[in-house]
Write a protein that binds this DNA or RNA. Structure first.
Length: 352
DNA sequence: CACATTTGACCCAT
DNA sequence: ATGGGTCAAATGTG
């Protein structure tokens, strides 16, 4: 399969899944029927496109694997390294699967969510016509393990409480059991990135800290023991938040936003890893997972979402079952990784 | 000292 | 030509 078409299929499936996720969020927050109708239309369109792509034979099998001069296959990172050189020789840039996740911050704070992945910022750029700069991150294990996962984080135009996180590629690295270090670094990073424009929001966040909050994860397709859809509630200390250092307060208002981006939004995120040593020892807050399914219509949407996940999984299985000598390793890898990475549309929603 | 971020310059697709 | 994405030297931090 051509790299382009495989990523198109995945993109389309991703789009549909994201729409479904958004629809669910909209339903939950009581959006108008028209809004929901439009989203359903988008979802159907995504399904249609995907089906047509597959049935039209767009997914031809081709070898995306790169070979060294001696004929042995090169590791992915070495392939990535040579991309620029390839570009100059006229070859197309490899399009990694890409999907966008919106991280919404309600009037309440978010939480520092770790999915075990650590990210390293490699750039920031002002985007034309956008109020806020876009941050560029890649997996910290890019050099050591050749993990090509990347993401871009940008504050939404219309709603400063919403961040658009665009993931590119998926993790091929081993998930680190401890994300404490990176999480705390991420906190600082966010503080720097967001700077002073957070003042007013921080006020709200600080306020919410003392009244408690609810964190909701959406559309999770975990193959882990975690439920596919879950929400967790947190109780907070009555300790004045101002008296706590951001580094030691995992729920630091300035750290919350970006950690959702930086560390990701995995459902397994709420493990003990996301409490910094200081807070876990001082027992500042407790967590109690309470599995909640949304009412009205939510089940159908979840079914639609899991449908997409199954398609992706099936596509991988199907391709690997094909005994073609021209297997596209890129697609295999991508699809499998999408599955493995739990397709992080599970943007954390922060509800007041 | 090792590793992270910042930021201006550069590359490349459009 | 332009804008988005990436590189890499400088700088910061623990």
């Amino acid at each position: 399969m051509e790299i382009g078409s495989s990523s198109m299929v995945v993109d389309e499936m991703a789009r549909g899944r994201e729409m479904a996720r958004q629809l669910q969020a909209d339903i939950d927050s009581g959006f108008s029927v028209d809004t929901c109708r439009a989203l359903v239309k988008e979802i159907l369109s995504a399904f249609d496109k995907t089906i047509s792509m597959v049935t039209s034979g767009a997914m031809t099998i081709g070898n995306g694997g790169q070979q060294a001069a001696d004929g042995t296959e090169l590791p992915p990172w070495s392939v990535a390294k040579s991309l620029r050189a390839e570009n100059s020789s006229g070859k197309k840039r490899k399009m990694l699967p890409k999907w966008t996740s919106q991280v919404r911050l309600g009037s309440g704070p978010g939480v520092e969510v770790g999915d075990g992945y650590s990210w390293r910022k490699y750039g920031q750029k002002e985007i034309l016509g956008a109020k806020h700069p876009r941050g560029y991150y890649r997996c910290s294990h890019r050099n050591t393990q050749g993990c090509l996962a990347m993401k871009q984080v940008q504050r939404s135009e219309e709603n400063p409480l919403v961040f658009d996180v665009t993931y590119r590629g998926t993790h091929t690295c081993e998930r680190r059991p401890s994300a404490k270090a990176s999480a705390s670094r991420d906190s600082l990073l966010l503080q720097q990135q967001q700077g002073q424009q957070q003042q007013q929001q921080n006020q709200d966040l600080l306020l919410s800290f003392q009244t408690g909050l609810k964190v909701k994860t959406e559309g999770l397709d975990f193959k882990s023991p975690e439920p596919s859809s879950s929400s967790l509630s947190f109780s907070f200390p009555s300790t004045p938040v101002e008296s706590l250092k951001p580094e030691t307060l995992t729920f630091s208002p300035s750290s919350t936003l970006d950690n959702c981006h930086l560390v990701g939004c995995g459902g397994v995120a709420f493990s003990n890893e996301f409490i910094s040593p200081a807070t876990s020892e001082s027992n500042y807050f407790s967590m109690s997972p309470c599995h909640q399914m949304s009412s009205y219509g939510g089940q159908a949407l979840q079914a639609a979402e899991s449908e997409f996940a199954e398609i992706i999984s099936a596509a991988a299985t199907c391709t690997s079952a094909t005994n073609s000598p021209m297997l596209d390793m890129d697609f295999l890898l991508d699809a499998a990784d999408l599955d493995q990475a739990n397709f992080p549309f599970d943007a954390c929603s922060f509800l007041s």
